[in-house]
Amino acid sequence: MIRRSFLPVILLLSTLSALLTGCWDTKDINKRLMPVVMGICKEKNQEYRIILQIPSPQKQGSQYMESSSATITNAIDNIRTNSEKGIDLLHIRLFLVCEKTAKEGIGDIIDYAVQANDISIKGLLAIVRGNFDEVIHHQINANPELSSYDFFSEQAGWTPESTITRLWEAYRDIKSYTQDMSIPILTKGTDTLYRFEGSSIMRVDNMVGEISSDEVLIYNVFQEKYTGGTIEVADQSSVKIKKASIKHSVKWTASGPQLKSRILMKVEILENKNEESEEQIASKLKQTIEKRANKLITQLKKDRADALGIGQLFRRKMNEEQIKNWKQHWYLNLENDITVEITILNSIYLKSPNKIKKPVS
């Protein structure tokens, strides 16, 4: 006979045993395919063409599965139907959209990816220029699926001359009245997997223009994502940016919004073949950055795309109606002034007796 004092213990063990059976529907990893890259392109008949890049240790590379349909969901379901294993989309790290589709609009693609329960919203976005198939299927080593992601990794191949946009950021910007985005443009590389061709200018969900790699530096500073890089100041000199930050002063006057921005840069001189003074190099760098910044803002206003997110700085100063009309009216009438302050940290890479004590502004 079971003693009554043991009954609670027995009931507890029975309950735990029942809970342990909750993993009955899991699939063995050998029965699953885990794509890391998804290519998306609209065809002439407006059907979505979906290409999944899946790591294949047996092939020492990748295998590719694709399908076309009127909807992205149905195209993926068709791939699943023709696959001998289950397809798990949770591991997709990179979404490649062809340039033609980006110009038509990517809103439906972003909506699908964000609303799908089995796709991570941390996935990265890029626009493919040129032959879509060649870029998707391009391989340079035995592990192209890793190279695809590392190309955008801040701990690996990513540089400040390129942008990084994730699914959740794209979804946020598409729904925003006061902010747009920029998505990197890729072509097939030669020695590398991809080659950056600058970044797109997106107005809501449409690609309306592009900015060069040089101007991407300004974009990343405004986004507070700049982590340092090398700039050629002139033909015979270059500097390494150790730190870059930005400070804003906003004002709403009777005529509309006014923005004054100060970009603060701390740099080290790498090359100085003309043996210019540090003051001369700092002055040239200041002029170069200010020229790029003003050119970028002029172009963005012309395209009516607030990719720098300037409208976010004025949200507290606008009423609801002004927020809704930001891109169509107030942004176009924005008065902006950008100044750059350069501080030379040291002359460790060259022999020069000149040193700047104060930043050039």
Rank of each mutant, 00 (worst) to 15 (best):
N143W: 12
K260L: 04
I50W: 01
L33V: 10
L217W: 05
Y226I: 07
A244D: 02
A244P: 05
S68G: 04
K242A: 06
Y112E: 12
L12I: 15
A282M: 06
A305L: 06
I241E: 06
I72S: 09
I342K: 04
W330G: 00
K260V: 09
P184M: 03
L332E: 12
D205W: 14
A116P: 03
L334I: 05
G157Q: 15
V340T: 00
E341G: 12
Q223A: 07
I281E: 00
T101C: 10
S56M: 03
T230S: 08
I121H: 07
H329D: 11
L270A: 05
K302G: 08
T230F: 06
K358W: 09
M181L: 13
D214A: 15
W326A: 00
Q258W: 01
I109F: 12
R129L: 13
L146W: 02
I323D: 00
A113E: 09
L334M: 11
Q115G: 00
D303L: 05
I121A: 13
K175L: 03
S213L: 11
K324E: 14
T343H: 06
Q312M: 15
T288F: 14
L13Q: 00
T298K: 09
K351I: 11
I348H: 10
E84G: 06
I241K: 10
T15S: 15
S14W: 12
D180L: 01
L308R: 05
I356P: 02
I241F: 07
L296V: 03
E104R: 10
G228A: 12
V9N: 03
D235E: 15
N82T: 09
W326F: 01
S17T: 13
V114M: 15
L345I: 04
V204I: 14
